[in-house]
Each structure stands twice: as structure tokens, then as C-alpha cells.
Design a protein around this nucleic acid. Sequence first.
DNA 1: GCCGTTTTCGGCCCGACTGTTTTCAGTCG
Length: 562
Amino acid sequence: MSTNTELAKMFHTMATVLEIMGENAFKVNANSKVARALEDLVEDVATIEDVTTIPGVGKSSAKKIAQYIESGEMFEYQQLIASIPHGLLDVMNVQGLGPKTVRRLWQEADVTDIPSLREAIENGRLASLPRMGKKTIENITQSLDFLATNANRTRLGVVLPIAENLIAQLKVLKGVTNMRYAGSLRRGKETIGDIDILASTDEPKLLTDTFCAMSDVEKILAQGDTKCSVRLDVGLQVDMRVVDVVKFGAALLYFTGSKEHNIVLRERAIKQDKKLNEYGLDPSNLSETEEVIYADLGMPWIPPEVREDHGEFACNETPMFITSKDILCDLHCHTPGSDGHMSIEELATIAIARGFHTIAVTDHSQSQGQANGLKPDRLRTHIDLIREKNETISGVTILAGSEVDILPDGTLDYDDELLAMLDIVVASPHAALQQSPEDATKRLLAAIEHPLVHIIGHPTGRIINKRKGLEPDIPTLVAAAVECDTALELNANSYRLDLKDTHVRAACEGGAVIAINTDAHRPEDFDQLQYGILTARRGWAEPKNCINCLEHDELQTWLLRK
DNA sequence: GCCGTTTTCGGCCCGACTGTTTTCAGTCG
């Protein structure tokens, strides 16, 4: 785990402990804020001279960070975690239990962790506490059962289709005038906690009743006039809010978040003697669209993907981030030459249908035995086949490429003579993904600096919720990528999204170019492009930052420079 | 604990729903 991640976890933990101890809520929040800042920090925090330059990090936190970097320990952290049973941190994850209740459970019912909480429920100790009725205990029990089986946030690629399907079913109901998803889904985060749906309707009861009665609803968590929450059988929570159509914009803004973005917006409103909530911006009484609210606060409309209070408030105009329409080619695709399931003809047909001017065939190299990687002889034959198809198929340029393995020591899986025969070389790490950050940085640097490599494919090799992948020093890679004019891939597959959002931003700000590719093995994989686009937008990427936005001849020129 | 387009001290976002209560605290987003 990187120092940043370790420290972020510690600050999160300190915030939770302080909360349970009943500390000042602002102090709690300050610790959470530091944790968040560290999570999103791309540079190694140890390399930053003055950490108080990071927004949210003040003198006190800086001292703790410095102490940890120097000694590997943090006095205050150790003191805090020693002050409560460690298992209480898990109890805080039970839905419906907050700091006040957890403290009471601990001090009045000897609850110290999840097992002792279950035990206290079973032997009736919990029921003897004041304000612990039958219903509350039933809810805690169900939350415990849920927690035991569903710990992770769900991948964007799973949640988005579910949300679209729900909306398609509910939007056609009588009286519904408006319906959209909001929350972290609209912001395009790589994982989603729950689905937020916002609706306007003349028949609110019909909508909420239908929603709660849908066949994939497993449990109704709350059902009021304007708000209801359910849990789907797949384990996802869906919150629906019904709002007046003339207040839809204010509600959309509010429920899209992030919380941190909203807080800054409300603070701005207060400074201008205004008041912003989910019903509108007073006293101007603006609420119909997000745009008018931002405008009244003296700001341009901010795309949802960057509403994280990470610099978007400095924008003087709406940034023109990349969209799917800007993507003119896919430079990383597979065929049965290795482990793909589309012929070259099929690839070409799909590329033409999507309006691409170019598609690259980049099958795996020889080390990828399990993926039917091409031995040098087979690659030569494969290149001939691709060239032949490129001659006979019109309407799209088909590039002969390879996704060549970056071996653990940074060398490539084919010799230079063979690589030089290719139109495009995507070099990716596939094995030895647990090496040290130092080794990973060296390995990837070698590939970036290789004169025949155009793109570094999925640079960290992470699999969301499954595999951490490499932890190279991103600023170092970005600097080298700029120097060598090598593109860093944002692999659009929703399992990967690698580079991730903060890395994309570091790349773009550092002047490196990115490539957004689907790594398609099957026809439907091309639909994953949308997740890559959302992630790129979260990384503030504009078309000028991305080689997939180059016109045909510009791309050829860029490729031939290597 | 952090921060400053009135502030280095005095603030720090705001409303809905639930459950257990006779008027509201706690949790969530």
C-alpha cells in the first residue's frame, strides 16, 4: 500500500474514532477531509515539501503526516485507536447505526464488535436499552445480514445499465414528466454505492408505489411522500426522490453532489446573502435548471464529473471535456489471433458503424500463453493477414499492431526487429503485478522510453474490487511520457479504468497524451467506451489530450514518428 | 481541525425519514 493510501486510512479511522468519542463534528470533518485529499493525491505525499499547500491540510495534520513519514508511526493515531475497541469501527459500517448509537451500544451494552453486537441482540441485552424498540433491532439485524454478504461498492459498468433499465421502466408511467439518475453515477465514479433517481410526476403515489413494488425490489428501506429507498435483489440500494418539475434543476444539482461540491456552493450562496437547498436558490427563486443556479452564483455550469471540490470552482467558463463523439478510432482490440472473438472483418464493420477512421488489431504477445499469445512466426503471418484485409476492406484503416507484454524487468516480449514491422505497439504489463513501486516505476519507464512503443496499455494492471495492480510513481511516468511522446492508455473496460481519474488528470496537466481504448474482445465490449469517457472527463481530459481524437492523417503522422 | 473578496477568531450546509416518542434525536445523503 502506498504511503498516501496508508495515511488516508489512518485519517479516516481517526475521524471515525473522534466521532464515536463525541468530538466536535467540525474536527471530525476536518480529519475526513484530510483523508480524502490524501486518497486523491497523485504524487507521493513524502515528496511534497509543504503539505499544508494541499487544501484541507493544516498545521496539525501536517505534523502528523510528517511524523508518520519519518518514523512510520503516528502518536495521535495510536492513542486514538487505543481509546476504543477496534471492532467498533466495523459496527459503524452497519447501516442505521451512527456514532451516538454505537457509543451507547459500547458503554451500555458491552458491544465491542460485530459478533458481540449479534450476541447482544440474541440475548436481549440490546432491547433493554432506551430507544431500542423492536423495529430498530429488526433493522440492525437486517443491516448486519446485508453487510455480511455485500461489502464492496459496485462497478460503474454494472450499475449504469441497471439504472438505465429502471428509468426505462418507470419513465413511461402515467404522469411522469422528468426522470434522471443523479449521485455518483451521474458523476461517473468508477464504483457506485447506490443509485439515486430523481423524478417529477403528476402522480407521485403511482410512481412510488410502482417503484417499491417492482419485482427486483428485495426490501423497502423507507417510503415517504417525496422520498423512498429500496434494496434490489442484486444488493444495490436505490433512492428515489420525487420533486416539483419547476425545482428539478435544484434537486438535480443537490442530489448529484458531491457533498463537498454542494457545501462550497452553499457557502458561496451564503456569502452572497442567498440560500441554496434542493428546492432552489433564494431569494432569486431559481430552481428549474442547474445552469441558472450556477449563473446566479456567478459561475459557469460545471460538468457533473468534476464536481468534487477539486479545483472546479476556479473555472471561469464551462470546460469542454472530451465526449464519445470526439473519439475517432480504437487502438487496442483483439481477434482470434490471440484471445479475441471477432474476426478482422467484424472489427472493421464495427469500426465503420461507429464512425471510426482507424482500428488497430493488437493481439497478445508470446508470453501470454493462456491468452493464446502470438509466437514471432505467427505474428508475422498475422501481420500479413491484417495488411491484406486492410487492402481489401474499404472505409476504415486497419492497423497491424500488438499488445506486447512489458516483462517484469521492463524489456518487451518481442525483439525490436519484429516490433519495427508493426504499425502500432501497445505495451502492457500483465504479470508480476505485485512488484514494488520502485520496480514498477522502472519497468514502465523502460517501456515508455522504448523507441518503438506508442502506447502504454492499462499501466497499473489493476482490476477494480479485485486486484490492486502496480503502484508506479505517476508523476515520473508522466514526465517520461511527455519527453518520449508515448501515450498512456485509459483502458475503458469498466473492470480496469486504468489509468484512473486522478491519474488521467495528472497526465493531462503534465502535458502527456492519453489514449482511450476499449481493449475489445467481443462486439459488446465497444460499449465500454462510455466508461472510459466518463473517467477521462473526471480527469479533466479535453480532445486535445487524447490521440483517439486525432484525424486520420494526424494519427498516421503521430504513429510514424516512432 | 481548518480557514479568510467583511474575518487570524468565530464560524463551519441543510432537509427528509424513522422510530420511539408526546416533541425530537439520530441517521442519511
